[in-house]
Design a protein around this nucleic acid. Structure first.
Lengths: 358, 358
DNA sequence: CGACGCTGGTTAATCGATATACCAGCAGGT
DNA sequence: ACCTGCTGGTATATCGATTAACCAGCGTCG
């Protein structure tokens, strides 16, 4: 391939493969490397004129400080880990995480932080991964998702000296701060109230895995909301979050003699599949059975019938988590204000309870 | 908080905040740091006994080579970028990516590579991001998704000296290798054949954004498959991939006097919403109109009716992309064998064309 | 017996940026 | 004239690992 002259000779020299270093910038600006460093970091004592000259030279050469070199010297990588734990690799499609990542990125990217993503099959692997990432000095902190009842990660991360946030932790105190709950139950309570107001009395709850903290919290909220009305759940079924489980459980519940008039699901995918199972069993939604989801997927707005669901604003939770974590990394950030609590979005999949045995 | 003794004194010293370095390992094993390096990298000349002694010492101290230091010295970060381009931040829930990431991770993680994830609003930002990541030496390569008709990224990445793979590129040649297509049209062709065999003659195609390469490819496949049967599409509508657009377009198409008997969508979310729109218009699926999706989301299996869709095996594409990229980074990897082409999964949302005007 | 070559290491330079300690001017005070 | 203090920089050690160059010891062969 023939060598071709570049239009702008000095500028970022595309294609030569050799990136400029701080030395090149120092030479171009006629100063020492120390001065360049001070100019870009806005530290030390240096005249405004020199600073501008250095920055101009850096821009001209298309130079940015080498992340590995900076990380080595500063012991800071500007990288945050997000580890997603999924039991099987067949199940890879949780829209929840896309939203979370969006929220995280919105805060991380403008501050020069990157998000290192990993998938692991189970908690043991996840713990091992944090140990490795910490030992290799690859990350400055971690976002912990899917808080478990007795979660080993906060202790582990603290031991490793890494800041972390635990999503869905009820306790904003030690060892690592939590984000996003405390009011987590608000959405479920609202859903129950909504159903009660529509005359539902036989309400069943399809829950997530029992060892997930938010499963327990939401279940408790569900039961206590019912209890306040002097009722008890018709049934509570823990599942593994798969669509298949949703169908199995729904089919079973709807076949009972004391068939529930309303079903509450732990996410929208399962709710949609639950609706499918109900229709397949010859029941109409919401005339024969009401269905409530959780997550507020875009899809739910357009189904037939449109899905009533709880919008838990994962994106905001992600943003708050990022800010908390950045603060833990020593960054100057505004306090993570988590205003919106989960709230019910009423659409068409819920309606008056069918007339029948009281 | 009271200091508590750790059970195993030497092991990985949790909580002291200071990670061991290669020096500590060298001292513990009674050798020089050079020897430690050679032991863990399996390079240089060193006796088997010493190697084992060093590895034992490393394990004892819980030491792994510092990633930043290694990256600085080797000019290799063992990090791959995956940049997701989404027009708005409201839209963050594409299950497609979860699958892709699963496929990538399956190959990257075992080789010590990490996946650096970023979200950007548009192509300009995406390009700028690659330039920054390259300038900072943060990544070894990149996975380029959503290939566009005239895609600036392959040229850019080549200019930056970074290996890359372009997903959904028809041309496995320069400047960067592509993965996952060439047979991309197979799924759509199969879908069309399936519909033709069921007597459908008025088939409409809902496509993705026109500037996305795979939109064009699939559209071409759709049209050519019809042409081979002496037919022309009833309509082709490009959309922005949102659920809302699916509903709008579907509603419009079904209101036509020459109403289509079958609709083909570019992903499952849109297909599901399309079904919703059809039902809302008083039509039955598949009796009045057949619907075909694309992606094979788990959800589609359990809907009512179950969704006929194209399984494009994103996960395998991801694995192949990872292998291609790793090879470009100089890793020893098996050749990326991409056996499975997209294939149609026939379920309940498609059926015989309704009797009517021929 | 001495040069040779092999084995199994070690020494020291290096990657790119940062931070501490230091220094050259120069103005001002006495 | 001389010391002081300040401004605006520079020289250099350092972060932790890799690697080229080098070397000690030892068996071997001419």
């Amino acid at each position: 391939m023939k060598e071709r002259l570049e239009g702008r000779p000095g500028r970022s020299a595309p294609g030569n493969g050799t990136r400029p270093t701080i030395k090149a910038v120092a030479a171009a600006a006629g100063v020492s490397t120390a001065t360049v460093s001070q100019a870009v970091n806005d530290t030390g004592r240096i005249s405004e004129a020199t600073r501008r000259r250095v920055l101009a030279a850096a821009a001209e050469l298309g130079w940015s400080p080498s992340a590995p070199a900076t990380a080595l010297r500063r012991a800071r990588t500007r990288t945050i880990a997000l580890v997603v734990r999924r039991p099987t690799d067949v199940l890879g499609a949780d829209p929840h995480f896309s939203e979370l990542i969006t929220g995280l990125e919105g805060q991380l990217a403008p501050r020069g932080y990157g998000l290192l993503l990993h998938l692991v099959p189970d908690m043991a692997e996840e713990s091992a991964l944090y140990e490795r990432l910490a030992a290799e000095g690859r990350i400055d902190g971690a976002v912990l998702t899917d808080a478990r009842a007795d979660d080993p990660r906060p202790g582990l991360l603290e031991g490793l000296g890494l800041p972390a946030v635990l999503l869905g932790a009820p306790d904003p105190a030690a060892p690592v701060p939590g984000v996003g709950l405390g009011q987590q139950d608000a959405g479920v309570r609202e859903a129950v109230t909504h159903l009660l107001n529509h005359g539902h009395r036989r309400i069943a709850y399809v829950a997530g895995p029992a060892d997930l903290l938010h499963s327990g919290l939401r279940r408790a909220a569900f039961e206590s909301a019912l209890a306040e009305a002097g009722l008890r759940p018709l049934a509570v079924r823990h599942t593994d979050f798969t669509e298949e489980a949703a169908v199995t459980v729904t089919t079973e519940l709807l076949a009972r003699p004391d068939r529930p008039t309303a079903l509450v699901f732990p996410n929208d995918s399962m709710a949609v599949c639950g609706m499918g199972a109900a229709q397949r069993a010859g029941l109409r939604v919401p005339e024969d059975v009401s269905v409530v989801g959780y997550d507020n997927l875009p899809l739910g707005r357009w189904l037939h019938p449109r899905l009533t669901t709880v919008d838990q604003q994962v994106q905001r939770v992600g943003a708050a988590a990022a800010l908390t974590l950045l603060a833990g990394c020593g960054e100057e950030v505004p306090a993570p204000l988590l205003d919106g609590r989960p709230r019910l979005v009423v659409r068409e999949s819920t309606g008056p309870a069918p007339a029948g045995r009281p």
